[in-house]
Computed example of a mutant assay.
Amino acid sequence: MIYRFLLVLLVLLLPAIAFGEGSPRLAVENADYSFGKIYAGMKVEHTFRFKNSGDAPLMIDRVRSSCGCTAALLSSTIIGAGEIGEVKTTFDSARFKGAVVKTIYLYSNDPTQSVTQLYIRGTVQEEIEQEPAKVDMRALVPGATKEARVTLTNQGDKELLLSNLQVTASELKAEVTADRLAVGESAEVIIRATPKEGQAHLSGYVIISTSSANMPELRIPVYGAVAVAKPGT
């Protein structure tokens, strides 16, 4: 009788013992990837590899990135003991400038770290620098023309062509002093604004097409407040 009781007890306890001993362990080969220096508009692809160094299945609940500019694709949500998993990432550098760090979060059943962080970092440089990046005409006077200048500098490694200059507001006129930029050279965009009577604000863009695959279009915002004439003046 006692023998049968001990046998039943052992059968009941075995799953609990096995569960307590086995656990997954997420180990990343290199959690920090540096892409160095790239031009704005380029995309960076990198695959992070990790291993389940534990003795129970590793379950990846979800993958999340710190911003929509970075996509992450998981090879599998279940990684067996001793098996390798991958996270394929793509970082879109459009609209970024300077040093950047993006984080990918892996949520798993690893009892020692439920959230594992992966990093993509580097420096994003504009192939064509705009200085200033936007133009504030400030105190404009109806019927009077005000001028501003924006310098374009080729920071890339090949000659670039400028073409198809346009403005999006009838109060704006613009011209560029060169139609091609050698490496390291600059050109100026001369912008003239002439607000109309009764106009309170001026807003528009100067748009220039380029031969750059990374920056095919330059958009220079132009805005300003228009002085309102006082009654009797």
Rank of each mutant, 00 (worst) to 15 (best):
Y105I: 03
V228T: 14
E217R: 06
L106C: 07
A227W: 09
G232W: 03
G80M: 09
E83Y: 02
S23A: 14
E217I: 11
A27Q: 15
V176Y: 06
L106A: 03
L218E: 01
V124Y: 00
S53A: 15
G80H: 13
L12Y: 06
M1I: 13
G98C: 10
I208F: 02
D179V: 06
E21T: 12
T153V: 05
K173M: 11
Y223F: 13
P132I: 05
N30Y: 05
S93C: 10
L118R: 01
A169Y: 06
S209H: 04
V63L: 11
K51S: 15
A81W: 12
T210F: 02
F19C: 08
V8E: 11
I128G: 00
Y107S: 05
T168A: 10
S211I: 00
A72K: 04
K134R: 08
V222Q: 00
Q166I: 08
A139S: 05
L218Y: 04
E188S: 09
V87A: 05
L118K: 00
K173A: 12
R149P: 06
G85L: 07
V87D: 04
I79P: 01
P111I: 07
A200N: 09
F50I: 00
Y107T: 08
G20E: 04
A174S: 11
V115P: 06
S65C: 15
A71D: 07
V101M: 14
R64W: 12
F5Y: 15
F19T: 10
V11K: 08
G68D: 13
Y223W: 13
D92G: 04
E147R: 08
F48T: 00
L10T: 13
K230F: 12
L73W: 09
T168C: 04
Y3K: 15
L118N: 03
A27N: 14
T151C: 05
L26Q: 00
